[in-house]
Design a binder for these strands. Structure first.
Lengths: 132, 132
DNA sequence: ATGCATGCAAACATTTTGCATATTC
DNA sequence: GAATATGCAAAATGTTTGCATGCAT
């Protein structure tokens, strides 16, 4: 058989590039709609549908982190690389990435103690930041 | 001034009781709609709107845990009391409640180290359970 | 030239709200 | 009897999909 195509053939389009640029530019989580607004503001001419689709693809490929905010909306942020968690200010929304071997180890061990394998976890810490 | 009423005067109604019973009966997270289905099935005669409202009140008062599932729907589960986290089998959905002073302390300390106050957190651990 | 990507509008799904009516206190 | 709770239908919200057209390859 011929070489297996990695995934789907990703095509480089003006709008997909625009979404990537906007996402890469920021440092915090933004919803698809916020990103669409910014693109609109920059006259990038990218439809909301396309933004949704682009972000989904980017999330699938691990290019961005996708989390769900308190309102149940998806938020996206460029991924800083490794595994990490988020410390979110519940007042202004400021986000700090945190990592900690402590939790990693704890989660893994408690899961295995319960007979779970192939473990991973999601952690969000909420608080009020110093500016608020 | 007259005594301040604690919150709103909660009234005991047939339907609110029915929701509480269904929630107390189960052990896993269910969406408002699933709970409504079960009530419907039991001919409890409780409207979907009421189920939503009842669950919101119960969540506010800490009577149930409310989390958002992967699809962004709210799920509710009777609260076993204290603060805890969930270990979820990604194959069969089995849920184990876990607690751990380790994470609690870690989350609190890392948050405060970043200048965050009034901290709380949400943690979900996913894995494959021994039965799967 | 081929076929994935786009974008509009419409479909969808979940949750919330307005308001008349029923029920609890 | 006063005030809250209910329930329907409709609104609101966020996201997805169908399909004709455009564009990258």
């Amino acid at each position: 058989m011929t070489a297996t195509r990695n995934h789907t053939a990703q095509r480089r389009t003006r709008q997909r590039t625009a979404v990537e640029e906007i996402v890469s530019a920021g440092d915090d989580f933004r919803t698809a709609q916020q990103i669409h607004d910014e693109l609109r503001h920059a006259d990038a001419g990218v439809g909301l549908t396309t933004v949704y689709r682009a972000l989904q693809l980017m999330a699938d490929s691990g290019e961005v982190d996708a989390i769900r905010n308190a309102d149940g909306e998806m938020s996206y942020r460029r991924c800083s690389g490794g595994h990490h968690h988020h410390l979110v200010c519940r007042s202004c929304g400021r986000t700090v990435e945190v990592t900690g071997p402590t939790v990693e180890r704890w989660a893994k061990s408690i899961a295995e103690k319960n007979g779970f394998r192939d473990v991973n976890h999601e952690l969000e810490i909420f608080g009020t930041c110093s500016d608020c």
